[in-house]
Design a protein around this nucleic acid. Structure first.
Lengths: 198, 198
DNA sequence: ACCTGAACACCGTTCAAGT
DNA sequence: ACCTGAACACCGTTCAAGT
């Protein structure tokens, strides 16, 4: 008469959701397959059916993270079609904001363990980075960025955002300072996006 | 007749050196107090005398990392007293190079766990960041950077370097591309350090 | 195909005891 | 002051067995 396990084929999603919550409240070190199984009300061996080992769970989390971040960036990039400065600012804010809100997930996504990651993770990450290119390609052709090499500048821009997020996540600077640095980055990268030039 | 333990008061240093090696060959997850004790030829409880727990070992590693990186940056910054572009390039290369060679250590230094770190770690990190300011203070006053706010620009510059290192460490870009991005950063931040401006 | 539950090796941490 | 060694709780992983 005891009810059957109430997850019918969605245990994988349940585990991932619980893992994201744990990641947000604690950190990567708090992620335990056994604890997740406990929260889901299944035996400690059950996750094995969906994740071959702990790393597979981490990879799945990273993939979902890249997909979510890619969506956030694409959405921000579509918001201000006519205003380049506002668009760059929106994308930068979305990127840094995601990294701040989900610092542990972001750390997971960009950890050294991403090396040799499964194809799905690599694909999701690639989708994010190429979307940056599509957002500003026309503006690069129009010479609205302080650069001669679009690809280099795009990477450097992403690197700057990534670095701002890292400084905030490691509490080297306060979260509020992030907006200042985003503004400084916009001023630096975009021609005429700056209050001053020297 | 068995020899006494051959570490007389330097077990702490022996453990830290072994930990740095493990960090370089493997990753943070490979760091085990028991394994380090084994390598040092002491009992598994011995490290307790020098590190209250695993986190204390990690903190000590982070502190040493910040000190080494601070030295490397200061040395690079003293190399080209008369040539700003060369100096900025040297500092950037030193920073990114350190992050690439000791990727796992760098990740440890900037991990979210740096939050609430002991004063020694915070002090070592602060020493690094303030040294950046001292290196370029005069050049900022001379208006040789594309900026109106020296502190913001310094932070953004560090963020860019940090981001370049992160992209390389996570294998999002090849290590060789790091030099390109450093060059692009120099061109962008330093007035007249660029091949082109639009 | 998915889940259970026992088993094994490993780890961090604590602590009384030795020198 | 520093190290030993037993003890405990917890974890990842494997695997035979159930449904």
């Amino acid at each position: 008469m005891t009810p059957p396990p109430f997850h019918h084929g969605n245990l994988r999603a349940v585990l991932l959701d619980a893992a994201e919550r744990t990641l947000r409240e604690g950190g990567v070190d708090d992620l335990s397959l056994r604890e997740l199984a406990r929260q889901a009300g299944v035996s400690h061996g059950a996750p094995r059916s969906h994740f071959i080992d702990r790393q597979a769970l981490l990879d799945a989390l990273a993939e979902r993270g890249f997909l979510r971040l890619g969506d956030a960036v694409a959405e921000a990039g579509a918001a201000h079609p006519g205003d380049l400065v506002a668009r760059v600012r929106a994308v930068a804010t979305a990127y840094v904001g995601f990294a701040v809100r989900d610092a542990a997930l972001m750390e997971l996504m960009f950890s050294a363990k991403a090396a040799g990651a499964p194809p799905a993770v690599h694909a999701a990450a690639g989708r994010l980075f190429t979307s940056f290119g599509a957002l500003f390609a026309a503006d690069f052709r129009a010479g609205r960025f302080r650069s001669t090499d679009p690809e280099r500048t795009q990477l450097l821009f992403v690197a700057a955002l990534q670095g701002i997020a890292a400084l905030i996540a490691s509490e080297r600077i306060a979260p509020g300072r992030g907006e200042d640095l985003v503004e400084e980055a916009v001023a630096l990268f975009v021609v005429d996006g700056a209050p001053g030039d020297g």
